[in-house]
Design a protein around this nucleic acid. Structure first.
Lengths: 218, 218
DNA sequence: TAGGTTCAAATGGCATACCATATCGCGGTA
DNA sequence: TACCGCGATATGGTATGCCATTTGAACCTA
């Protein structure tokens, strides 16, 4: 998942620290990032810092601006479109697989998450965290580590974009809660076809809501 | 792509060398791999060797056996199933996108590739190389860098498996040529729906053919 | 004042050194 | 002969040093 795991080694620590800094806006797209500054910030040496940054680069969160070092990746509208196309097909498949493969306890946990969500509609940050946890749970239920990893990566990239999540809009938050509930119920009912359609629709709605924010090109 | 690009830095060189060694069977699943041996083999120092290996690990080609270092990843039947589920949904989407987005020259090149393929049916290794080039071309045509990267990674993982490709069977090679031709023609005709179905079918056939090889669990 | 030149600081890439730990073999002892 | 313990070796993790390149800016000159 994307959780704050207690990193056992310093490279993981660097990876998580920088990733989280990007996710929460401490670092913005276009910001330059150097091995030195990162190492100094985290009180570690350059080597593990470099390893963490290389990993972020491999995942697409950082871009190697040819002769100027690493920068937080800016995603243009074309890349955003590609990401949402990819997310739609993968989240659709994940929802179907979750409906087929989730264990009883997993489904219980998924339902419990949706029950909790309604109470969070007023709290934007809590909703954002909960949204990630919810989708993470579905990916878990699908029992497909590859689709899980890929979608997690794409979610991180999207979160890094300064246009942020569509959840800043409270109307969208209300809508999301309904979409989540319907999706969770379809999965719990083991209705794979319905779950797939609802998941795809959910991702499309998310993309549409984000485009409506109408923020300038990165 | 997976091409033998002239790596500009040593870490990339290490990455490519080890990846290719895995792909061509020089290294087999379960084989231990150390930073030291890799560095010595390639006449570089541990640092870039380590970076290349870490990248391979992040992609899933190497596994970090807890107390024994890195080993070439063994994929069990469950993982193979997950991979093919993921490949099916992504290759399906890629085929559809290719039918919609491919430029004229790209389609010409795709058709040219299929024309060349028929003459290769007797040459197993040439077919294997051509198969990768063909799928790489379709991924290119789709103009979706994320789906392209993910499917390339999965293809590398599958290639690493010692059970190898189903293309070792000449009957399968004949079938593949037909499936490729049909798929390329659907894309060239911009029939996205048909291309999607053909691509999904192709992946399922590939999985079925591989299972029929009935080789022991890794 | 504008433009060019030069030099210092920053940065990435690579090599190497150091340390802790784990593995494996060798030898001694019961 | 079998088992136990100790030490050499292998290995990963981390720190640091060196070098080439580039950038940015101060300074000099026309």
């Amino acid at each position: 998942m994307t959780g704050r795991s207690t990193s056992s080694n310093l490279a993981d620590h660097a990876y998580e620290a920088v990733r989280d800094a990007i996710a929460d806006g401490t670092l913005s797209p276009g910001d330059r990032i150097s091995e030195y500054k990162t190492a100094d910030w985290l009180k570690i040496s350059r080597t593990p810092a470099r390893e963490g940054l290389l990993r972020l680069q491999a995942e697409g969160l950082l871009a190697n601006h040819p002769r100027r070092g690493l920068v937080v990746a800016s995603i243009d509208n074309e890349a955003l479109k590609e990401i949402f196309v990819a997310r739609e097909v993968m989240e659709r498949a994940i929802a179907g697989q979750a409906a087929r493969n989730a264990s009883g306890p997993e489904m219980d946990q998924l339902i419990a998450l949706t029950d909790r969500e309604a109470g969070l509609v007023e709290d934007r940050d809590a909703m954002i965290r909960h949204n990630r946890a919810f989708h993470g749970m579905i990916r878990s239920c699908a029992h497909n580590r590859y689709l899980m990893k890929f979608t997690n990566t794409l979610e991180d990239i999207v979160a890094a974009d300064r246009r942020g999540t569509s959840l800043v809009d409270i109307a969208r938050r209300h809508a999301v809660i309904g979409e989540h509930r319907a999706l969770a119920e379809a999965i719990a009912a083991r209705d794979a076809g319905k779950a797939e359609d609802l998941a795809a629709h959910h991702i499309r709605q998310s993309y549409a809501a984000r485009l409506k924010l109408k923020l300038p090109e990165s």
